[in-house]
Design a protein around this nucleic acid. Structure first.
Length: 384
DNA sequence: AATACAGACAACCGCCACTAA
DNA sequence: ATTAGTGGCGGTTGTCTGTAT
């Protein structure tokens, strides 16, 4: 036999809590604590499910909850942590690793690695639900406006973007886009040029446009699905005799997602459409060894304007946003499991923006925050 | 002033891991 | 060893409020 049921769901009130109910719940918990949520509503005289009481207390009534707008520093922390914890695959990997290693945070408590709660642990006074809502209503939309996928934290490559560019894909228009590289995603620019340079002289164009129409008209493929199925940006130059895969037949790219960041902004700034030929990419794989020594992953670009002439901080106890791998799983855990008394941006010494910064400045900065990837930082080999 | 729409956020739902019985 | 309740999570929905037309 298991335990007694949590609550008898019949006759229990649902919906918004009244001030009277709040008062009863607060009064009861202040006097008795909240050891058992199952029996709490009955003992307190509330016609609510224990689960509902727990949610109301943890998300709203708890005395240590900080209300009000999120500060810029808090938003920055959320974005950074979400970029590391937002990927379900990475989450599962980390959970698996932590399971194997039975990771301990040093206090004897096994670290729980849930995304929103982990972020909330870095933001005292903020609840996971509050952060989740803020993400969905504010940050997510902001990222979408900036052309960044809020799920993968990589540049959006949905077909709507491509369509917009391809519809104006004359060389002249492309040159204009290149001049706007600060505004348009450089990877997208590059792909747009590659595609436009071929002028889609074969049937691929028709297939591709059909795919767009499918996405737009029938919404068969959501943006996220399309992104998941789109070939990585590093292999935009499909051999001309190769069919453009359709939404339903595409396979998951076998190129690590981090590779799509391996462009230099200079590639775009100095980009010459004539220099890019389909034959440059014969194997559908990017050859990382072909990059010059001064190559800097895209994940680093943008930080130039943050750090100015100063090099990025090298403190390995904080998260590194550059392409180097001096990032450890343990450092993530220790940061997450040790909430400071005040929200500490993960690389706060790089911040030059202030709360008085304009929205554009903040958006620009936030976009820079996103230009790094889990794989750039998380050295899984450390745990193998 | 009335209506429609969008944004913000509280609350619910379903799922899952853990664990008491 | 098995069963089923509990707590906690992410995703989603519902409701309220503010703004535009």
């Amino acid at each position: 036999m298991g335990r007694a049921p949590c609550c008898d769901k019949s006759g229990l009130k649902k919906g918004p809590w009244t001030p009277e109910e709040d008062h009863i719940l607060i009064d009861y918990i202040q006097k008795n604590g909240y050891g058992n949520w199952r029996t709490l509503p009955k003992n307190a005289g509330l016609q609510r499910c224990g689960k509902s009481c727990r949610l109301r207390w943890t998300n709203y009534l708890r005395p240590d909850i900080k209300r009000g707008r999120f500060s810029f520093e808090e938003e920055e922390t959320i974005i950074q942590l979400h970029s590391m914890l937002g990927n379900k695959y990475v989450l599962l990997t980390i959970k698996l690793i932590s399971k194997v290693l039975s990771y301990d945070d040093g206090t004897g408590t096994e670290v729980e690695l849930y995304r929103w709660s982990a972020i909330a642990a870095r933001l005292p006074g903020r609840t996971d639900n509050e952060i989740k809502n803020y993400w969905n209503t504010h940050i997510r939309k902001k990222l979408l406006r900036m052309g960044i996928d809020p799920v993968t934290h990589t540049p959006r490559l949905d077909l709507l973007h491509l369509s917009a560019i391809l519809n104006s894909s004359s060389q002249m228009n492309f040159s204009r886009l290149v001049g706007m590289h600060n505004l348009v995603n450089p990877q997208l620019l590059r792909l747009a040029n590659l595609l436009s340079s071929t002028q889609f002289q074969n049937q691929n164009q028709n297939q591709y446009l059909m795919l767009q129409n499918n996405a737009q008209d029938n919404q068969i493929c959501s943006n996220s699905q399309l992104q998941n199925h789109m070939p990585p940006l590093v292999q935009p130059c499909q051999p001309q005799n190769q069919d453009i895969p359709t939404c339903t037949t595409l396979e998951t790219p076998n190129v690590p997602i981090s590779n799509i960041d391996h462009f230099r902004t200079s590639d775009v700034t100095n980009f010459n459409p004539q220099n890019c030929q389909l034959n440059d990419w014969p194997n559908n794989q990017i050859d990382l060894t072909s990059f010059p020594e001064d190559y800097v992953p895209l994940s680093n670009y943008g930080y130039d304007c943050v750090y100015g002439s100063d090099p990025p901080p090298s403190d390995t106890s904080t998260f590194q946003s550059n392409g180097s791998s001096n990032f450890s799983f343990r450092s993530v855990l220790s940061n997450m499991s040790s909430p400071s008394s005040s929200p500490t941006p993960l690389h706060s010494n790089s911040i030059k923006l202030t709360s008085n910064s304009t929205e554009e400045e903040k958006e620009s900065y936030c976009s820079n925050l996103l230009k790094f990837n889990i794989q750039d930082m998380l050295d899984v080999n450390e745990f193998v």
